[in-house]
């Protein structure tokens, strides 16, 4: 998505990304980025929290108005929960799932080989985090 933003911006359309994977977006480099420090999935605010969602998009619009240089990041002023254990949980690899992940990898490669034989060459990132 960051690559799309860069292409639009280079062709005259100002852009802003709202996202939660800060390291990936900033590694790529984008013009304007509103960072929501939430688990991946709800960068525009918690599900069904209309006030928070409106506040976050309002901050995004303000950032579009005020940013004057590329690589401008702002952070939304919300936390997901007092318990931060979700941060350790994403795409975790430990002894409890090592064998299962190895098996899943084999299965994924087998499926990709089949897809390729059928002419399907578009591959998504692994998405079972």
């Amino acid at each position: 998505m960051s690559l799309v933003a860069r292409h639009l911006e280079a062709n005259g359309i100002p852009t802003l990304i709202i996202g939660s994977a800060r390291d990936i977006v900033e590694h790529c480099g984008v013009p304007r980025f509103l960072y929501t420090d939430f688990p991946l999935g709800n960068p525009c605010g918690k599900p069904y929290d209309h006030d928070m969602q409106l506040s976050i998009i309002s901050q995004a619009i303000a950032l579009l108005r005020t940013a004057t240089t590329a690589n401008t990041t702002e952070k939304a002023p919300y936390i997901w929960s007092a318990d931060n254990s979700w941060r350790d949980d994403y795409a975790k690899v430990d002894d409890s799932n090592r064998e299962e992940l190895a098996r899943r990898g084999e299965e994924r490669r087998r499926r990709q080989t089949e897809d390729k034989a059928e002419g399907i060459d578009r591959v998504a990132m692994i998405a079972d985090g």
Partner: peptide
């Protein structure tokens, strides 16, 4: 098929990731 944190949240509310209503 997207990489989001399925163990701790959900995507049942479209407005939480596509800000149309807002």
């Amino acid at each position: 098929e997207l990489s989001w944190h399925k163990a701790v949240t959900h995507t049942d509310d479209v407005n939480s990731f596509i800000p149309l209503e807002q």
